[in-house]
Design a protein around this nucleic acid. Sequence first.
DNA 1: TTGTGTTTTATTGCCTCC
DNA 2: GGAGGCAATAAAACACAA
Length: 182
Amino acid sequence: MTTTSTKRTTKNSKRRFNDDQVKSLETTFEAESRPELRLKQNLANKLGLQPRQVAIWFQNKRARSKSKQIEHEYSMLKSNYDRLELQFEAMRKENQNLLIKVQRLRSMADENNCEKNKKQSLCMPSCSDKNKNFDYLELETDVLNEDKTVEGCTIASPKNGSSFDSCTFLDNTGSSPQWWGF
DNA sequence: TTGTGTTTTATTGCCTCC
DNA sequence: GGAGGCAATAAAACACAA
């Protein structure tokens, strides 16, 4: 085994650990990421390194490991977010289509009612007639037009504008910085 | 070969724990 | 107060395209 770190050829020279050293350090790290002093000293003796070097290697390794873990967690969260975003968009479109259907049915019913009233010499329906015939439609559209609050996020209905999401978490318009864009 | 980006080793300064 | 950990950073070593 070639020891690269114990002899310094020039001032502040830095040598990478050889494959055997790294392999041994990696193996130990897998078993114990924060080894106690005695283990680090034994490892240093075995590998021909200074205990300080071994300690620093574990410190750096923990930092690298943590950063990789964060990267992994980020990609998981991102894919979950993307999936939810697609689901949300599909539901939003479905909701829009249903609202359009409700509007059409309502218009048809209005026309139908008008025809009936024409036969009775009254083009405009009376309030009582209207209530009698369309209560169910109004109830349905009221339900659809209500603003929804889901986990603190207001889902605005079309009557209040075209935006369905007032929550910045779901804002993907590009006008606000993406939370993952670091 | 060289410029540039990435990885690895090492240092520094601060914080926490005993 | 000393030991050890962590974050930030420096700097050497390495990889690689042009």
